[in-house]
C-alpha cells in the first residue's frame, strides 16, 4: 500500500523550497554568478531545473521582484531579466532590520554559530590549496571594498568560500541561505568604521587559522566573529527603533 504523505508535509516543504530557491537566486545574482541583464529561462524550464512545481518557482521569482533583483517585461521580447545593481538599495535592509526582534537575530546567530563555526573547522581540516588562496584573497577584497555593495559581496563570498572548502554540499546551502538573509542587514550606515576594521580582523583570524590547518582555532575564531556580528546587528536594530520612535512619538 502506498501512503500519501503529501498532505502532511507538502505545505511546509513547498514554502521552504520557495525560500531556498529565492535565497539561492538572490546570492547568485549578488555574487555575479548570473550576468546583469541576462534573461532567466522560462518558468516551466527553471522549475524543472530546480525540481519544484511551477507555482513554487513563481513564488521565489515574486520575492526576487519585490527585492528589485529581477524585472519582468511583457510583450514579444518579454521575460524575466536579472537586474543586478552593484549597490543594493539600503531601504529594504533597514526595514527588515527594524522589523525583526532581537530574539530573531539571536536565533539566526545560533544557526550561524553551528554552520559557520563548523564550516571553519572543517575548512581548516580539509581545504585544498586553491580554496585557501581564495579565502585569503577575499579578506584582502574586504579591505579594498569601499562601498556597501562591495563589502556585502566580499563578506558573504568569504563565508560561502569557507563553506565550499569543507566539500559539504549541505553546509554550502545553509551558509548561502544565511548570507542571503543577514549580510545586507549588517552593512548599513549604522556600522562604525572601527567595526569595519574589526570585521576585517576577524575574517583575517579565521583565514589564518584555516591556512595553518588549525581546526579548533578556526572554529573558535569563527564563533567569536558570529557573536560579535550579533552584537553589531542588535546595536543597529536598537538604534533604528530609537530613531523611528523619535520620528513618530506616541
Amino acid at each position: 500500500m502506498v501512503i500519501d504523505t503529501s498532505a502532511l508535509i507538502a505545505p511546509l516543504a513547498a514554502a521552504s523550497r520557495a525560500e531556498e530557491i529565492s535565497a539561492r537566486l538572490t546570492e547568485a545574482i549578488h555574487l555575479g554568478l548570473i550576468a546583469d541583464g541576462e534573461q532567466l529561462p522560462p518558468e516551466v524550464e527553471l522549475a524543472q531545473q530546480f525540481g519544484v512545481a511551477t507555482m513554487t518557482l513563481r513564488e521565489s521569482i515574486a520575492s526576487l521582484r519585490e527585492r528589485g533583483l529581477v524585472e519582468t517585461r511583457r510583450g514579444r521580447n518579454g521575460g524575466t531579466f536579472v537586474k543586478r545593481s552593484l549597490e543594493p538599495p539600503e531601504e529594504p535592509d533597514v526595514a527588515r532590520l527594524s522589523d525583526v526582534s532581537v530574539g530573531w537575530l539571536r536565533d539566526a546567530a545560533d544557526e550561524q554559530l553551528a554552520i559557520a563555526g563548523l564550516a571553519a573547522r572543517l575548512a581548516a581540516e580539509r581545504a585544498a590549496p586553491r580554496s585557501v588562496r581564495l579565502i585569503v584573497g577575499l579578506v584582502d577584497q574586504l579591505v579594498a571594498a569601499e562601498t556597501r555593495g562591495a563589502r556585502i559581496k566580499a563578506d558573504s563570498r568569504f563565508h560561502i568560500e569557507v563553506a565550499i572548502a569543507t566539500r559539504s554540499d549541505r553546509l554550502v546551502r545553509r551558509e548561502v541561505a544565511l548570507q542571503a538573509e543577514v549580510a545586507g542587514m549588517l552593512w548599513l550606515p549604522h556600522l562604525a568604521e572601527e567595526d569595519v576594521a574589526a570585521i576585517v580582523r576577524e575574517h583575517h583570524e579565521i583565514a589564518t587559522a584555516i591556512a595553518a590547518e588549525d581546526g579548533e582555532g578556526a572554529q573558535a575564531a569563527s564563533e567569536r566573529h558570529v557573536r560579535a556580528n550579533l552584537r553589531r546587528l542588535t546595536a543597529a536594530h536598537l538604534h533604528l527603533l530609537e530613531d523611528s520612535s523619535r520620528e513618530n512619538p506616541r
Binding site: 555574487l31 555575479g32 554568478l33 550576468a35 546583469d36 524550464e45 522549475a47 524543472q48 531545473q49
Partner: peptide, 21 residues
C-alpha cells in the same frame, strides 16, 4: 544533467564582468 532533464549550463561568461567564471 538536472532534475528536469539535460540542458545547457548557464554561467556568467560576460567579458568585462569582474565576476566572470
Amino acid at each position: 544533467r538536472r532534475a528536469g532533464g539535460i540542458g545547457r549550463l548557464r554561467i556568467n561568461l560576460s567579458q568585462n564582468d569582474p565576476d566572470l567564471y
